[in-house]
């Protein structure tokens, strides 16, 4: 059964359409990466899922319940970390964590102490004195210390140092091991690649691509750097080759994945002396979509 399911959710703010029919499905136990450029509608989607905004049209369900009407019931089994964590300046981090765990319906548990230790947070400091990263740690600790079945994380690591990002990734893997579901919105593509089972790309209020990373990779291109014994004739015109640069016997270019076989056969007949290949990264995919499906793949770089 789908843990999160949206059907054509649309959100208009006056004349502006922020979401234009978003369809999304998260299955139990999976980590879903939600990526897209700034202003594409990631946070709006998440705020609708959380029952903070009311969708103008469409349906959204979590645990089979309506996100707007049954918000409280849903939230008992859900943990959320916003990208921009604003806390009460005159409460301490420790107090905020306890409050959050309690409001979510949880009880005091040993995970709180363990997480505070792992994230290296001083819980006796007032939130006013915390940096962005530290405020994010407070929200992350509160989320992972609560007994949730679904974690909604909206760019949770944007202020964390690499060490803490690592701790975060461990935490996500731990909850996944317990069979929990995670919705991770992120700009850090390496993080999404490392953690997520499936990815959805949103652009201008629509999900334009969704699938497993492997499925998505088929849509993208492999980077090749080659050197050949003899010059390769007509390489510029060969179908499936993009963004070519270099000269004579040394070239670097990208190849559509489905044309890779043809390209390799063609080039190898001129005697390959050197071959470097880099697998398509999520970043390539991302860039391709962000730049408006520019067919030449123009400004892509490795």
């Amino acid at each position: 059964m789908a843990v999160v399911q949206t059907k054509n959710i649309t959100k208009r703010f006056g004349a502006f359409t922020a979401l234009d029919g978003v369809n999304m499905e998260l299955n139990e136990g999976e980590i879903y990466g939600f990526i897209g450029p700034n202003g594409a509608g990631k946070s709006t989607t998440i705020r609708i899922l959380l029952g903070m905004l009311k969708a103008s049209a469409g349906e959204a369900q979590i645990f089979g319940k309506d996100v707007w009407k049954d918000a409280v019931e849903i939230h008992k089994r859900l943990a959320y970390v916003p990208g921009d964590v604003n806390l009460w300046p005159n409460l301490t981090g420790g107090e905020v964590i306890d409050l959050f765990v309690k409001l979510q319906g949880g009880t005091k548990n040993s995970r709180r102490e363990e997480l505070i230790e792992r994230f290296d947070l001083d819980p006796s400091k007032k939130c006013r004195t915390y940096s962005k990263g530290n405020r994010q740690k407070v929200a992350l600790i509160a989320a992972f210390a609560s007994e949730a079945d679904l974690y909604i994380l909206d760019e949770p690591t944007s202020g964390l140092d690499p060490l803490m990002e690592n701790v975060f990734q461990q935490c996500v893997n731990e909850v996944k091991a317990e069979g929990k579901t995670v919705l991770l919105s992120s700009h850090i593509l390496s993080e999404v690649e490392k953690l997520c089972d499936r990815v959805g790309i949103i652009r201008q209020g629509r999900i334009i691509e969704t699938g497993t990373l492997d499925e998505l990779r088929h849509l993208t291109r492999t980077k090749l750097v080659i050197e050949t014994k003899q010059p390769v004739p007509n390489i510029h015109e060969f179908a499936g080759i993009h963004g070519i640069s270099g000269e004579n016997r040394r070239w670097s270019f990208q190849v559509d994945t489905e044309k890779l076989d043809d390209v390799m056969k063609y080039i190898s007949s001129y005697g390959i002396t050197k071959l470097e290949s880099a697998p398509p990264t999520l970043e390539d995919l991302f860039m391709r979509h962000y730049e408006g499906n520019d067919p030449s793949g123009g400004r892509r770089n490795g």
Partner: peptide, 23 residues
Amino acid sequence: RAKSGRKYASWFLQSPAGLALRL
């Protein structure tokens, strides 16, 4: 100067009403 505070929330703080009153 802001003093450092409690590491744990008192039972009083752990509800919306307690939070509102505290603020």
